[in-house]
């Protein structure tokens, strides 16, 4: 074998070996993971409904991952649990249904993997998405006005039941706000996010 062939072989060999080590072996180790039965008789993690899955696509389309991670680090490594971002560390099993993954590498905003157990109020989420400073003064999260429809109220009529309740002064007297389907799906997804069930690898 001459030197050129050796060079090519070495280059190809090093990258193939690393893909085996960092991708194929972990896949072999983890692909058999299954949901576990909890004390309440349900299997966890639970698959998302189609509506929630559509919300996950909105989450991806809006690029939430660039500021929000979806992983709780172990106790005594960072302060994730002390901050109330989870009651236990996240484990591989929690992500069985995530395609594509949204683990994230940035926390310009807080971790969201347990946002469903922290905040279950639809109206809070809608206000927060419409204008984050309504619920979180000082937040630098962008507003998402395009996830809402502003409607004008005809004189003498009440806003419909699904209108978002707003603090006074945000909208004009004769206006009300409706979430678009995207917003409803996104909030359904956010509310579904929770790693608060017991798994053999980590207890809450």
């Amino acid at each position: 074998m001459n030197r050129t062939a050796l060079l090519y072989a070495g280059i190809i060999f090093t990258v193939i070996i690393s893909s085996i080590g960092l991708v194929f072996i972990p896949e072999y180790q983890l692909f058999r993971l299954e949901p576990v039965e909890a004390a309440d008789g349900n299997l966890y993690p639970q698959p998302r409904t189609e509506f929630e899955e559509a919300g996950r696509r909105v989450y991806i389309a809006m690029g939430c991952v660039y500021c929000h991670s979806q992983q709780v680090r172990p106790e005594h490594f960072g302060a994730d649990i002390d901050r109330g971002w989870g009651t236990r560390r996240s484990v591989a099993r929690d992500y069985l249904y995530d395609q594509p993954h949204q683990l994230g590498t940035m926390r310009t905003g807080p971790d969201l993997v347990n946002i469903g157990s922290r905040q279950s109020d639809d109206n809070w989420h809608y206000q927060h998405l419409y204008d984050p400073e309504l619920t979180s003064p000082g937040s630098t999260m962008p507003k998402f006005p395009f996830l809402f429809e502003k409607r004008t109220l005809e004189p003498g009529r009440e806003p419909p039941f699904n209108a978002i309740r707003m603090p006074p002064g945000v909208l004009a007297e004769n206006e009300y706000l409706l979430p678009t389907t995207d917003a409803q799906q996104l909030v359904a997804y956010l509310k579904s996010m929770r790693h608060d069930y017991a798994v053999p690898e980590a207890q809450p």
Binding site: P26, L30, F31, Y95, L96, H101, L103
Partner: peptide, 19 residues
Amino acid sequence: LMIHLGGATGVVQGSANWW
């Protein structure tokens, strides 16, 4: 292949992503 075409499951996509 591993991330978008279904080759890897769950967190292994994260490993493939950063590899």
